[in-house]
Design a protein around this nucleic acid. Sequence first.
DNA 1: ATTTTCAAT
Length: 211
Amino acid sequence: MITKLDSMLLPRKKFIYHYKNVRWARGRHETYLCFVVKRRVGPDTLTFDFGHLRNRSGCHVELLFLRYLGALCPGLWGYGAAGEKRLSYSVTWFCSWSPCVNCSIQLCQFLNNTPNLRLRIFVSRLYFCDLEDSLEREGLRMLTKAGVRISVMSYKDYFYCWQKFVDCKKSNFKAWEELHQNSVRLTRKLNRILQAWDLEDLRDALKLLGF
DNA sequence: ATTTTCAAT
Ligand SMILES: [Zn+2]
């Protein structure tokens, strides 16, 4: 089990402030990304590194992560001149916001060129996804088509992040009011964006049809 | 609250 120095971990208050899945997350002006990098060797995965990043000077945190990725994943681009023998990695990230359309496009391009990298995304809140025809919604669909699984964080994900990325001083994660309701609401919204049938939607549809 | 959203000073 890899562990980090306390200084490398997120302070508790900071984690709660930025990851709280409230409907109106005003005035934060920052986005955090907690990541786990695993090496894939056949059917097995080995945790290779983990940590967190924050957006810097006009650069969204997702693109900052892509810049770091070469250093995080030795051999991702292969060893020899022809770039053969690429090593396989899986990355899971937990971001306080879902990606904007620009980041989604760049991520899709990156993943297209890097089939030996698998990406799994959890988000706390949906970024600019209110309008039916928002580009951000389209970006999330593009990512899904590129093979990225995107989910809204639920209690178990906050619980995991708390013990993995936060300087929690052995304290247990304590859910805020509305964590569950907000997570369910956002999950339904994401499901609708990704055009998946949601159980509640199905119930509504059946009721409408008189069943 | 008809609230905001990876700042701009
Ligand atoms: Zn972005």
